[in-house]
Amino acid sequence: MNAPTRQPDADIRELSYSEAIREAMGLALERDERVVLMGEDIGVYGGAFQVTGDLVERFGADRVMDTPISELGGAGVAVGAALTGLRPIYEFQFSDFAALAMEQIVNQAAKMRYMLGGEASVPVVFRMPAGSGTGAAAQHSQSFEAWFGHVPGLKVVQPSTPEDAKGLLLAALEDPDPVVMFEHKLLYKMKGHVPEGWYTTPIGKSAIRRHGKDVTIVASAIMVHRALAAAEKLAGEGIEVEIIDLRSVRPIDGDAIIGSVKKTGRLLCVYEGVRTLGIGAEISAMIAESEAFDFLDAPVLRLGGAEAPIPYNPDLEKAAVPQIPDIESAARRLARREV
């Protein structure tokens, strides 16, 4: 779980992923009266993952609003508030609970601009703590990025570093359309460099985390860090892996992926959501339909979540999503043309 390699910097300032998100929200609350935070236990409790932390003490309970346990209604209130002039950031306590609010996110927020012929905007941000690895079992560990990525009208981002967590949240807040941000729970404590002040990370742009010529790995969130660890081991065997951090699921940065595959001729997609009909399927198809197809030296591989709910038992839980050795072995087989 190392942060992406970075040049040593004299005035480097490190924050954790959750501190970076909190800093972004604090800046937004300071800068714009219209910004309100809403969610379950985000006030004095500080949020289930302590992301909002002390913001209620700084900005008051009118702007850092504890909602009742009403995900459908809460998300809908955020939609209505965004439609009429506020800039709400709604925190789902776990992304799994967004299933209760699909109506407002998918039928209302995502389609409002279109249904109204461009006459209205819904600038709402939905924050979603996601992913497995915490022993929380099947209803508190899912990865729904692909679900939301399937909906025109939504933008979906998935930061893997503290710097991007802050930059993508501020970009989401500036965006006139609804944005869903998936935050991986295992990353909340990860530290990394975070620039001071207001900056944005562009939505729809990936980032190359490691350059290589033999295999392209497209990964997102926690999988970026596992892929980096696998790449480090493979480098010892002379296999040079290029790692693309997806960052945005919708819109997806096709050009960067196609460009990398044209260079390496081999592609491995690594994501935590269920493998079938997931992000990897989309990326594979995108390559099959692009000029990169002619550059492929091996079949495209996908590593994704198992075709099962996330189990409670720790060994089963680990086996349910890609781990470093899985990535290492798949990339090695690709590099050696063993597939």
Binding site: E33, R34, V36, D62, L72, G73, G74, A75, G76, V77, A78, V79, G80, A81, A82, L83, T84, G85, L86, P88, E103, Q104, N107, Q108, M112, M115, L116, A120
Partner: peptide, 25 residues
């Protein structure tokens, strides 16, 4: 007029959001 709605009950939380905006601003 924030709109008709094809979903039964879809406008209920949205109206509450409009009320929240009115109160906050």
């Amino acid at each position: 007029n924030l709109g008709a709605n094809g979903i039964v009950g879809g406008g209920l939380p949205i109206a509450v959001g409009a009320g929240l905006t009115a109160k906050r601003l």
